[in-house]
């Protein structure tokens, strides 16, 4: 069998279109990290359990270690690098993480942020319990989750105020 079956794909990542030839077997996570050099998307387990690699595909959260890069052809990807409105500003969700000790080592943070970005869009006024369920697919070894939950609830308020 041909070992290097390849395809040319065009993927929009954080608003920029990238056209690249990739081996069909590489995951979307490896495409983002190694082909595009966007190493904010972290790989903790590479089998769907930890949530660190979560990105938004057409606005929907997905584990990028469980998708092939070729499956993103023609789609829009948002990674943690694309969340802030600009180089000198943070998204209210990121500010809330900073202010509520929502991160320590930061390994889980990209996945937490992308997961919560979608969740707070679906559910702008969540309860604490709903937040805990929303991040149940994201493992954090540092914070004990308390700061992350507080950050998410705080972010919901900030985002609502921003819309008002």
């Amino acid at each position: 069998m041909e070992m290097t079956d390849k395809r040319t794909i065009t993927v929009s990542v954080n608003g920029t279109k990238h056209t690249k030839e990739v081996p069909v077997r590489i995951t979307l996570a490896d495409f983002i990290r190694y082909e595009l050099g966007l190493t904010g998307t972290h790989l903790g387990c590479e089998h769907g359990v930890c949530g660190a690699c979560t990105i938004l595909l057409d606005g929907r959260s997905a584990r990028s270690c469980l998708m092939l890069a070729v499956q993103a052809d023609g789609h829009e990807v948002l990674t943690v690098e694309g969340i802030a409105p600009g180089p000198d500003a943070l998204h209210p969700l990121q500010e809330a993480f900073r202010d509520n000790h929502g991160l320590q080592c930061g390994f889980c943070t990209p996945g937490m942020l992308t997961t919560l970005l979608e969740f707070l869009g679906d559910n702008p006024d969540p309860t604490e319990q709903e937040v805990r369920v929303a991040i149940s697919g994201n493992l954090c070894r540092c914070t004990g989750y308390q700061g992350i939950v507080l950050a998410a609830l705080d972010a919901a308020k900030r985002m609502k105020a921003g819309r008002a």
Binding site: M1, E2, M3, T4, D5, R7, P23, V24, R25, I26, T27, D30, C45, E46, H47, L68, V70
Partner: peptide, 11 residues
């Protein structure tokens, strides 16, 4: 932890 080589088809 990477997928093994295969050929990809998208009917």
């Amino acid at each position: 932890m990477k997928p093994p080589p295969f050929q990809y088809h998208d009917p």
